[in-house]
Computed example of a mutant assay.
Amino acid sequence: MHDKSDALPGDFFAIPDIHVIRMQGRDAIAFAQAQFMNDVAALADGQWQWNGWLTPKGRVVALFAVLRVDGETLRLLLLDADPAGFVERLQRFVFRSKVTLAPEADVAVAGAFAAPGSARGAQASVNDDGATELDLGGVDEPRTLRIGAGPATIDPVAHGRWRALDLAHGLPRLEPSQLEQWTPQQLSLDRLRAFSVKKGCYPGQEIVARTHFLGQVKRGLARLHTGSATVSAGDEVTAASGSGRIVCSQGDEALAVLPLDPAPVDLQVGGTAARALPLLDGLAR
Rank of each mutant, 00 (worst) to 15 (best):
G220T: 03
A158R: 00
Q178G: 04
L280Y: 08
P156S: 03
M37T: 04
S241G: 15
A84L: 13
A274L: 07
P151S: 10
I246A: 02
M23C: 14
Q181Y: 10
G170V: 01
A276E: 15
A263V: 14
A110I: 03
L8S: 09
S196N: 02
M37P: 00
G160P: 07
D129E: 12
S228C: 12
A254F: 02
A149D: 13
A28E: 00
Q49D: 11
L174Q: 04
E253C: 15
H19S: 15
V109L: 13
A240C: 13
T272C: 11
K218H: 15
R96E: 14
D6V: 10
W53S: 12
C201V: 08
Q49P: 04
T73A: 07
G204I: 02
V94C: 11
L67S: 01
W50N: 11
L267P: 02
T211D: 10
G121I: 11
L79D: 08
T132G: 05
A254T: 02
A164G: 12
F13Y: 07
I18E: 03
D70I: 03
A254E: 05
D166H: 10
D17C: 15
E180H: 12
A81N: 14
F13K: 00
I207L: 09
F31K: 01
S188C: 09
L101G: 01
